[in-house]
Simulated scan of single mutants.
Amino acid sequence: MDPDRNKHIRNVAIILVLAVAVWKLPGGGTAATTISNVFSVLFLGGFCWLGYRLYMEHRDTLHGLEERQRAIAYGAFALAVFAIAATGRLWGDLDLLGGMIWMLMLGLAGWALYSVWRSYKTY
């Protein structure tokens, strides 16, 4: 280990103390769920911001596509968003069938985006 070994031991000890506090203190599970929900909202907000930035940087290219290709691209994006939003329900309630449907939806979205990219590059 490097010379600052005590720093790493201290950081691991802090994480362990926080984990035990969430596990043993009353209301710790509720606090953990709340923090998890806040991080989920921030994560999804980051994805939305990234999508907006990518759209703004490449909108000339998107508007330069044929109508059919642009519709396929937007439909594939909507299908991927729907699949990601329904992940919990598909994997939780329907087990194997739901997982297969989820993979099929993401596969179709990826294939559609690839076909749009391929036609854009060949023109």
Rank of each mutant, 00 (worst) to 15 (best):
residue 7 K to D: 06
residue 38 V to D: 04
residue 2 D to C: 07
residue 88 G to C: 09
residue 91 W to M: 13
residue 43 F to V: 13
residue 73 A to S: 07
residue 8 H to K: 15
residue 48 C to V: 15
residue 44 L to P: 03
residue 83 A to P: 06
residue 13 A to C: 10
residue 45 G to S: 08
residue 105 M to F: 08
residue 36 S to L: 13
residue 57 E to K: 14
residue 61 T to A: 02
residue 87 T to L: 10
residue 11 N to R: 15
residue 25 L to D: 02
residue 111 W to G: 11
residue 3 P to Q: 09
residue 19 A to F: 07
residue 40 S to I: 08
residue 10 R to P: 00
residue 46 G to R: 01
residue 83 A to C: 10
residue 8 H to L: 15
residue 114 Y to Q: 12
residue 90 L to W: 00
residue 89 R to F: 07
residue 94 L to R: 05
residue 108 L to R: 00
residue 104 L to E: 00
residue 73 A to G: 01
residue 97 L to F: 11
residue 14 I to E: 03
residue 113 L to P: 02
residue 23 W to E: 14
residue 107 G to M: 13
residue 1 M to K: 06
residue 49 W to A: 15
residue 16 L to T: 11
residue 43 F to K: 15
residue 86 A to G: 02
residue 62 L to D: 01
residue 51 G to M: 11
residue 70 R to L: 06
residue 84 I to E: 10
residue 99 G to M: 05
residue 109 A to W: 00
residue 44 L to H: 08
residue 113 L to A: 09
residue 109 A to V: 01
residue 44 L to E: 07
residue 21 A to F: 08
residue 111 W to K: 12
residue 69 Q to I: 03
residue 48 C to N: 00
residue 34 T to Q: 07
residue 10 R to M: 09
residue 116 V to C: 05
residue 29 G to V: 11
residue 81 V to L: 14
residue 5 R to V: 04
residue 80 A to W: 02
residue 13 A to V: 13
residue 93 D to H: 04
residue 92 G to N: 04
residue 30 T to G: 05
residue 63 H to Y: 07
residue 14 I to Q: 03
residue 24 K to V: 10
residue 117 W to T: 08
residue 73 A to W: 09
residue 74 Y to C: 10
residue 116 V to G: 04
residue 18 L to C: 15
residue 10 R to G: 05
residue 98 G to F: 01
residue 74 Y to F: 11
residue 61 T to G: 02
residue 79 L to W: 01
residue 32 A to V: 06
residue 55 Y to A: 10
residue 112 A to G: 13
residue 21 A to R: 09
residue 120 Y to E: 04
residue 111 W to E: 04
residue 18 L to K: 11
residue 95 D to W: 03
residue 18 L to R: 12
residue 106 L to Q: 04
residue 76 A to C: 08
residue 11 N to H: 10
residue 59 R to M: 05
residue 122 T to Y: 00
residue 54 L to T: 02
residue 92 G to W: 05
residue 89 R to I: 11
residue 80 A to R: 04
residue 105 M to P: 03
residue 88 G to N: 13
residue 73 A to N: 09
residue 22 V to F: 10
residue 27 G to F: 03
residue 108 L to Q: 01
residue 102 W to Y: 15
residue 36 S to Q: 02
residue 11 N to F: 08
residue 101 I to K: 04
residue 7 K to A: 11
residue 48 C to L: 15
residue 53 R to M: 09
residue 53 R to N: 07
residue 20 V to G: 00
residue 16 L to M: 14
residue 29 G to C: 09
residue 19 A to Y: 01
residue 89 R to D: 00
residue 71 A to D: 08
residue 84 I to Y: 04
residue 16 L to V: 15
residue 23 W to T: 09
residue 23 W to C: 12
residue 23 W to P: 10
residue 23 W to Y: 14
residue 9 I to C: 03
residue 37 N to L: 12
residue 36 S to H: 07
residue 60 D to S: 00
residue 59 R to E: 01
residue 21 A to M: 13
residue 9 I to L: 13
